[in-house]
């Protein structure tokens, strides 16, 4: 793989009294990358995140951070923004940011100067002496984000970091995440927001029903799941377009475009390649535009989860 690993989980098992939360889940996260941890609700993502944060311990399995066995001394190397988050409502913003930073192992002076510069960056210096009660939800989220990253962790775990932000602030946070990556931080992003996965994740792991069902780089996975689907816009007769080639392809969609064009979406069979298809139609219609349709992470997510659900009853037989 490209970079050395910052974090590795090997065969993690976690049982609760009446169910298995994680069933031999292994993940490998390369340094300086953004790792998407995906999965439906209740799949076991939170259990895994809590284990990485040492909030709970796994029943078996091994965890390595930067090559070392994960222990309490690594707390300062990890930053965690939980999905369900909150701050002390009646405590002043500055005071509690300092408190949380110190709990993460910073000294007061260092925490103070780092926090001040983050507050400046987010243009919220004026909030230092306000209480959280005085702030809106979005404002509180910003504070929370800052307190998560202020101690400059090697590994940053963000659970649904964009929920609660408006588009402008979502963008601000997204840029900050990319900035942190540029500076060398590795980020685990747990989210349902598949657009953001496509935009910023390098690698993903998909967990469903306590099992990891998919892992790898986003590009590779997309390739794996890609089908020969193309979007073709042309000028000409729709019937002659359809009759150009017999068999080996499927018309998925056809609609009227602007300036007398027709927009179609086609899927080629494995036997037919694009060149042969083009050869067939090129004499009958004028091609205006041709685009490869890649599977979205959303499609892949649904497909992979459905596939693992289909497998399940077969295993029982």
């Amino acid at each position: 793989m490209e970079n050395p690993l910052i974090f590795e989980a090997k065969e993690i098992v976690k049982n609760y009294s009446n169910h298995v939360a994680l069933n031999k889940v292994s993940i490998r996260i390369p340094k300086n990358s953004i790792f998407g941890l995906l999965g439906p609700n209740g799949a076991g993502k939170t259990s895994l995140i809590r284990i990485i944060n040492q909030i709970t311990a796994p029943d078996s399995g091994e965890l390595l951070l930067d090559g070392e066995k994960l222990s309490r001394k690594h707390i300062k190397d990890i930053g965690y923004l939980p999905e369900e988050r909150g701050l002390y409502k009646k405590m002043k913003v500055g005071e509690q940011s300092l408190y949380l930073a110190q709990l993460k192992g910073m000294n007061k002076k260092e925490a103070n100067s780092k926090l001040r510069s983050w507050f400046e960056k987010f243009e919220i210096e004026g909030w230092w002496n306000n209480t959280i009660e005085d702030l809106s939800k979005g404002m509180a989220q910003k504070i929370q984000f800052i307190t998560t990253v202020v101690h400059e962790p090697k590994l940053l775990i963000l659970d649904e970091p964009f929920s609660g932000f408006d588009p402008i602030n979502t963008n601000l946070v997204k840029n900050e995440i990319l900035n942190l990556k540029k500076k060398g931080t590795t980020i685990i992003l747990s989210t349902h927001n598949m657009n953001s996965v496509e935009e910023i994740c390098d690698n993903i792991a998909l967990i469903d029903k306590s099992n990891k069902i998919l892992e790898g780089s986003v590009n590779k996975i997309k390739e794996e799941y890609s089908e020969k689907i193309w979007e073709i816009t042309y000028k000409g007769n729709a019937v002659s377009f359809a009759n150009s080639i017999w068999g080996g392809w499927e018309l998925l969609k056809q609609e009227q475009g602007i300036n007398n064009t027709i927009k179609t979406k086609i899927k080629l069979s494995p036997k037919l390649n694009l060149n042969d298809f083009i050869k067939g139609i090129i004499d009958n219609v004028e091609i205006i535009e041709l685009n490869k349709v890649n599977p979205t992470m959303n499609d892949i997510f649904i497909k992979a989860v459905n596939k693992s659900n289909e497998l399940e009853p077969k295993l029982d037989e």
Partner: peptide
């Protein structure tokens, strides 16, 4: 109830 607990226990036992 204000959910700060999860952040706290990621830093202290």
């Amino acid at each position: 109830s204000n959910r700060i607990i999860e952040v706290l226990v990621s830093a202290v036992k």
